[in-house]
Nucleic acid binder design. Structure first.
Lengths: 345, 345
DNA sequence: TACTATAGTGGAAGCGCTTCCACTGTTGAA
DNA sequence: TTCAACAGTGGAAGCGCTTCCACTATAGTA
């Protein structure tokens, strides 16, 4: 039937289970010959000792924290993960960090169910993922505390997320203050597959900033597509081909901002002399590239998320209100005041 | 004494253990009143059900793979991690990936011991870390297969690592072929704390390339420091202040190359017009920055490492020889042919 | 020679759950 | 009224280990 147990090994070797266990834990007090017999029985049966049984009988308490996120491709996920890791290693507790990847949105529910069923984790950090009410209650029922490290909390507690609307406004205001009037927005098409409304929220901020400056909305200046540098590149090309191209672009993420910049340069134009570009996130890369952006302290968010979860694990049924990491305008080299000459272009 | 068990709950609630278990697994067939009693007993005792016992009795087999690495700060670790993740999710097995961070080299042994003692993992992926012979034999004794994802194999099996000497030579040759003769090397001081000889190996490649071109070695052109952009920045400043500054720099990593470039620009010089810079790794960032570099397919290495480990887990005692991911010169915008005018500078 | 250490071993108990079987009441159909 | 069906419950067995106690055989000591 199933896998061989220590009893099978004992029987095969013609010894007692105690002896087998002693060999397994290379304790003393086993004669070389017996050791030999046991080893060959183990080998013959292909025996592998059960982690779980061992843990139960030795009383080892394993505590696992799961971090679940989409493929860790975008730098913004990596930064959060780094913060998560850090918070965990700063506490001197022996939690294990288990990494889960949701490769396809459809599989999210299934993966959560597996995690719950197999009681793998003591707590869950849900990053850049939206969870349904059903999933939420499944977790609650199973007694698994979780914190959301997302871009939208919907009034949810135990959630770390910045004010993306405000952030979008901040970025747009920066461009408007510099005198730009033809300001474009490059972002993800919304709603996206994972149900994360980041792009939509930042777009709302963009709109409100335009409005507060009394600038008429121009739908030509809104370019939406899949997430990533390549799509941003293509969208920007289209923007540049407009009869009246924008003089400034707000890209909803740094990665997309980089795509914009590349497209602008490929078109023989300069950043920021001809077109200003501002991003969002302030990932590591942005410092190297010298990108003006909105810093949202991603690493710190991850850190806060893990801290919150650890607190919840220590004192159950604790409810911590939403925490908003601060947003900050970081002016580097990709934005500059509007130059009237440029408007003529 | 220890934590309350299901028996304590049953006694407190005045019911049988079966009933408590039924409540816990919210199965049917428990009357609302009983449910209520059990719940309040659970609450009163602060009962939390044991993962391990549950897993043992339900026969759930958990298989864990640990990935152990230094703080995941350098992008090169992240890229490998991404490959590791990918390989795991492509197989449809239900392994969990546990992330371990070695924050200080001194704690490495201790952490490995904990992992072994608590029998947490079925296999281990050791990334960018050197392990001693003792640690090696501890793992072997404990029957935990592992693969090294490192920069040096020392003739070791089950190890994925590129030929760093060749890579160093490749980078240097590229600069020499472009006509540069004053070529500097910027890298980590060796040996480093984790015992990883990456810098030393690439430096050897640098030396051999110089030699094959018959160029006299100049120790002023070797700048060693801690890993990272900042140190590279400082080292480059010193290089630029030399009476005869180099006309080209080989930085041992892309991150350091970025530091070099920033220092060069800060000094009012241009890349590559005044000084050429080549990096190593080809991390994501490098594409955005337009850096000439040596691609070592980090993500693919991670992928190969995980695949190898999975094979070892399926067919124990398998020994796979060292695998060398290919190295490739990627010419982008930070190197150009030596310009005699520049030599005068 | 008689006794005590001690090396070497077998096996029961126990880790904290789940699950199955047995049991008691209660309901509703015949 | 009698019986089957079933909701609701208790508790033993078992998951695969470790560990402790009991036991035997041998070596060492007086």
């Amino acid at each position: 039937m199933g896998n061989p147990t220590i009893y099978d090994v004992a029987r095969t070797a013609g010894v007692g289970v105690g002896t087998v266990s002693r060999v397994l834990n290379n304790s003393t007090r086993v004669s070389p010959e017996t050791q030999e017999k046991v080893m060959s029985a183990i080998w013959a049966l292909g025996y592998r000792r059960s982690k779980v049984a061992r843990q139960l009988s030795t009383g080892i308490q394993h505590r696992n924290i799961g971090a679940i996120m989409p493929y860790i491709t975008p730098p913004s996920f990596v930064e959060r993960l780094r913060g998560i890791q850090m918070a965990l290693s700063h506490q001197d507790n022996d939690f294990n960090l288990i990494l889960y990847t949701v490769s396809e949105p459809d599989r999210q529910r299934e993966q959560l169910l597996t995690i719950i069923d197999q009681s793998t984790v003591d707590g869950l950090l849900i990053t850049a993922l939206n969870i349904s009410d059903e999933e939420r209650s499944l977790l609650t029922q199973a007694g698994i505390p979780f914190v959301l490290l997302s871009d939208e909390c919907n009034g949810e507690n135990n959630c770390i997320s910045p004010d993306n609307i405000q952030g979008g406004a901040l970025a747009t205001q920066h461009l408007l203050q510099l005198g730009h009037r033809r300001v474009a927005y490059v972002g993800d098409a919304f709603p996206n597959n994972y149900g994360i409304p980041t792009s939509e929220l930042r777009y709302q901020g963009y709109l409100s900033a335009l409005e507060s400056y009394g600038i008429a909305f121009n739908s030509n200046y809104v370019a939406l597509g899949v997430h990533g540098e390549e799509a941003a590149y293509t969208l920007t090309q289209a923007l540049l081909n407009l009869p009246e191209p924008p003089t400034a672009i707000f890209a909803m993420s740094d990665i997309q901002a980089v795509g914009c910049i590349q497209a602008i340069r490929a078109a023989g134009l300069r950043v920021p002399e001809d077109i200003s570009v501002i991003g969002f996130d302030d990932v590591q890369l942005s410092r190297y590239v010298g990108l003006t952006t909105i810093r949202q302290h991603l690493e710190q968010s991850g850190y806060m998320g893990m801290q919150t979860l650890l607190e919840m694990l220590n004192t159950p049924d604790q409810v911590l209100p939403r925490q908003l990491p601060p947003l900050e305008l970081i002016v580097r080299g990709t934005t500059q005041p509007f130059n009237p000459v440029q408007g003529a272009g």
